[in-house]
Design a binder for these strands. Structure first.
Length: 874
RNA sequence: GGGCGCGUAGCUCAGCGGGAGAGCACUCGGUUUACACCCGAGCGGUCGUAGGUUCGAUCCCUACCGCGCCCA
């Protein structure tokens, strides 16, 4: 504060080297505790919990994007005086980690079963200590202002207690049950998967039609999974289907098995599809399962947990399902039972999202959450407006999920994760569900399965704040302010967090949900390893700095819309950072002083205009943040900083600084300092490193992280100053255009005489015009050889130039003709509108008046340009 | 098959009832005392197609074509 502005510039190097200072700045922020709000703070809380990244993961381009948004929001709220908490952590990624460590064991020639459960889990923790959580270090590179003192992991003791507490509550409320159901089975993982972990893909398979039974009593059925016929326990037809009416109630022989199976009538069969008769495999197909239940059919499981045929008593036992598919088909062919084959047959098949193989529908005993009451509450919270979804269009997708959710299968046949807190008596006749700290009766055995990772993720917004303990953190920071996540994750953690939050905490876990899009490459293509267009955000941080990457993300972040990103755009953002750097350097070299008093009496039009523009910028940035319109925020900042401040104000400030009027120059230094100060504050959430460096140098303040967010100053808008500056800009631009047309070098000075500036009210800006467009005062021998006229708000300004005879008339004529045709088009358009009676009668008064004004202006332009063209030498 | 979204300048995207915009790319000029990661000037669009509503449609409605996503 006491530092002399004139000497501060010595602390600012001539170029910005992000790589040299980012890490140091970051660690300083963390050490000073800026990111760790106190639960005792009197300030209003602002909370974001990180959607927990996977412990196996690295910071990919999508995380970096999402983190930028969260960091921007949190940093801004901190500057606005909130007790801002961004809570970091990771989930344990049950399936991913389990599979990863299991693979390692296989490579070492052993297996998890050989190792045993206890040692396997130890092994996983060891892996986590050595290799897990790399993303946490990478988040520091990006500048994530998270509170590391509150970091959480879903497998930590506290969060594990939260899991078992929640399980027990739901269980005791009858919202968790165990049942034998058709589930999505992964033969590779040997575990069940939730519906959300299955992705449907079109595949080229085959549709095989085969005949069951003999002669008149035979039926033809078709399937893409021939091997499942071994588990058929019926054939179903539509009850109204006359073709098969005589067969309903009879039996046919199921080939290869010697079994006889009934033909049943079921109204869910589509008589239009295929032959109208379908094979029924209740233990291996969801639809068939339902038919089986309705008709009390036997449910024959014909595969083991690895997808191999088992216990059918046929030659196919022991074969993998795909091998059996071919073998069964060929056997049927030998027996003459294949009546048709369609190949390739395009159809949709569910695949395991994690292990990629086709899932196998399978009858299995699992634990489920009864979601109906929970999902209804989650839907109501949005319907009632308690939770706002941004952008609102995403509500539909949310309701689609919430309103049509199936019960959630939460057990997994894995070892890494939260073990289901249910114990069985030695004879299996009794079971008990226990909460944390409760002991099962001696000799009872705990359920072997673990819980779906999403179960613990669903608790994340409050388990991370120490729930079920009633702590100061929980009271202060729950519910969280906003969940920032991709629209693809609606059904993963969003709905689960909503359901659990409302159930356990009696209020939704966030006040708002801000959905963002997916990061795509510069051509709008989805990034994927196979397309080879995946980029590493860390490489770009190395090359261009974290701020450049962050700014690029923000510029592309329209709510809910995909974000394309490419290296050239990151480079462009880096250029923007450099521009700011240089502008600040210029300001400091000229003694810009943000603390100096601004004497309003001495303000020039330029000062008034930029202060007003700056004021509007603050308002616009605030308004757009409120709507999560990040792209509009950054666009406004970019344009103000570059187009208004650097391109015009700084140039005008030079005129003032060199005017020799010390009082005026001092005032300009104060305005320069003030505007830059505001601009750097506004940019800080997006570009924390660069702005911190510049701002501390400019102001001598401690840190921008904890500086105040700008407020909209109560200051009258000087509309006249704005008009004069707009006129000034137009005048300068037109003269530059004329010079360019005439082939004058930008630096070449020419003598000129200007007129009409006084009646336009911009005579005070004459010195600035002369400086910006290199016009000398007309001397003794001044002889105007070229001239132009510029229509300003209040008058027409005349500019006569002495080009020493060398006038390019052709160029001037071309320019005038172009201007004329623009004016004529405008004139014609306005005339047509005003000539339309209905327009004049129906259009609002102000619209009609505006068109009249435009018509007059166009007419004046036409007259002036025509006269000038007529006066040009041939 | 059902649902949602999108087709605007070479590229990526704003705008969404009354004068077509931005960034990048491109062309020309440039040793202007902050900046060539720059400065100045410029080129570039029948706003997917066809109808309709309206005094007026890139904007609203309908159909179609193309692309993407989600669900079955």
């Amino acid at each position: 504060m006491s530092e002399n502005p004139a000497t501060r510039h010595s602390t600012l190097p001539s170029t910005w080297q992000p790589g040299e200072v980012e890490a140091e700045l970051y660690e300083r922020w963390v050490e000073r505790g800026y990111f760790s709000p106190s639960a005792d703070s009197p300030a209003e809380p602002f909370t974001i919990v990180i959607p927990p990244p996977n412990v196996t993961g690295n910071l990919h381009i999508g995380h970096a994007f999402e983190h930028t948004l969260m960091d921007v929001l949190t940093r801004r709220e901190r500057m606005r005086g909130k007790a801002a908490l961004w809570l970091p952590g990771m989930d344990h990624a049950s399936i991913a980690v389990h599979a990863l460590v299991e693979r390692q064991l296989v490579e070492e020639g052993t297996s998890r079963r050989e190792l045993g459960r206890e040692r396997f889990v130890e092994r996983v923790w060891e892996w986590k200590r050595n290799y897990g959580g790399q993303i946490l270090a990478q988040m520091r590179r990006l500048g994530d202002g998270v509170d590391w003192s509150r970091e959480r992991f879903t497998m930590d003791d506290g969060l594990s207690d939260a899991v078992s507490t929640m399980f027990k509550r739901l269980h005791d409320d009858g919202l968790i049950y165990r049942a034998e159901r058709m589930v999505n089975w992964s033969p590779v993982l040997r575990s069940v998967l939730s519906d959300a972990e299955v992705e449907y893909k079109e595949v080229e398979g085959e549709l095989v039609s085969m005949r069951y039974g003999e002669g008149e009593n035979s039926v033809v059925v078709a399937t893409t999974r021939v091997e499942t016929m071994l588990g058929d326990t019926a054939v179903a037809v539509h009850p109204d289907d006359e073709r098969y009416a005589h067969l309903v109630g009879t039996e046919v022989e199921l080939p290869l098995t010697g079994r006889r199976i009934p033909i049943v009538a079921d109204s869910h069969v589509d008589p239009e599809f295929g032959t109208g008769a379908v094979k029924v495999t209740p233990a291996h197909d969801p639809n068939d399962f339902e038919i089986g239940r309705r008709h009390e059919l036997p449910m024959r499981t014909i595969m083991d947990e690895t997808g191999h045929i088992a216990e059918t008593g046929t030659e196919f036992d022991g074969m993998d399902r795909f091998e059996a598919r071919l073998a069964v088909r060929e056997k049927l062919r030998e027996q003459g039972r294949i009546v048709a084959e369609k190949r390739p047959y395009l159809h949709s098949v569910g695949h395991s999202e994690r292990s990629k193989e086709p899932i196998e529908p399978r009858l299995s005993l699992q634990w489920f959450v009864k979601v109906e009451p929970l999902a209804k509450a989650a839907g109501d919270a949005v319907r009632s407006g308690q939770v706002a979804i941004n952008p609102p269009e995403m509500e539909k997708r949310y309701f689609d999920w919430v309103d049509n959710m199936h019960d959630w299968c939460i057990s997994r046949q894995l070892w890494w994760g939260h073990r289901i807190p249910v114990w069985y008596s030695p004879d299996g006749s009794e079971q008990v569900c226990l909460g944390p700290g409760e002991q099962p009766p001696p000799g009872w055995a705990q359920d072997e399965d673990v819980l779906d990772t999403w179960f613990s993720s669903g608790l994340w917004p409050f388990s991370t704040l120490s729930w079920p303990q009633d702590t100061a953190d929980l009271r202060k920071f729950y519910p969280t302010s906003v969940l920032v996540t991709g629209y693809d994750l609606v059904f993963f953690w969003v709905i689960r967090m909503m359901m659990f939050g409302i159930y356990a905490m009696k209020q939704p876990p966030f006040r708002a949900i801000a959905f963002h899009g997916m990061v795509r490459d510069g051509n709008g293509k989805k990034m994927s390893k196979s397309a080879g267009n995946v980029v590493d955000p860390l490489a770009w941080i190395d090359e261009y700095g974290a701020d450049a990457l962050r700014f690029t993300y923000l510029r592309g972040a329209n709510p809910g819309v995909d974000v394309p990103i490419s290296e050239e755009w990151v480079a462009a953002s880096r250029n923007f950072g450099t521009k700011l750097w240089n502008a600040t350097r210029f300001a400091m070299l000229n003694g810009a002083d943000p603390q100096a008093e601004i004497d309003t009496a001495l303000l020039t039009d330029a000062d008034r205009w930029i202060l007003d523009a700056c004021r509007e910028l603050v308002a616009s940035v605030d308004a757009n943040y409120a709507e999560y319109e990040f792209a509009k925020v950054s666009d406004a900042l970019y344009r103000f900083a570059w187009d208004e401040f650097c391109d015009w104000y700084v140039e005008l400030a030079k005129v003032s600084l060199n005017s020799g009027d010390e009082a005026r120059a001092a005032n300009t230094r104060a305005v320069l300092g003030s505007v830059l100060d505001t601009l750097l504050r506004l940019l800080h959430p997006v570009m924390p490193f660069l702005t911190e460096t510049l701002w501390t140098a400019l102001t001598g303040g401690e840190s921008l992280v904890i500086a105040d967010w700008p407020t909209v100053r109560e200051q009258p808008v000087d509309q006249q100053a704005r008009t004069r500056i707009e006129d000034f800009k137009k005048l300068v631009t037109e003269i530059r255009r004329f010079r360019s047309d005439q082939g004058l070098k930008p630096g070449q000075r020419v003598a000129a005489r200007l007129s009409g500036l006084d009646s336009a009210g911009v005579e005070g800006l004459l010195p600035a015009v002369r400086t910006l467009v290199r016009l000398n005062e007309p001397g003794q021998e001044f002889s105007a050889s070229a001239a132009l006229e510029v229509g300003l708000t209040g008058a027409v300004a005349g500019v006569e130039l002495d080009l020493s005879g060398a006038v390019d008339v052709a160029a001037e004529r071309k320019r005038l003709e172009k201007d004329l045709s623009v004016a004529e088009k405008e004139h014609k358009g306005c005339e047509a509108k005003l000539g339309n009676e209905k327009f004049v009668a129906n259009a609002p008064e102000d619209v009609v008046a505006k068109v009249r004004t435009r018509l007059e202006a166009a007419a004046a332009d036409i007259e002036r340009i025509t006269a000038r063209l007529a006066g040009l030498p041939e």
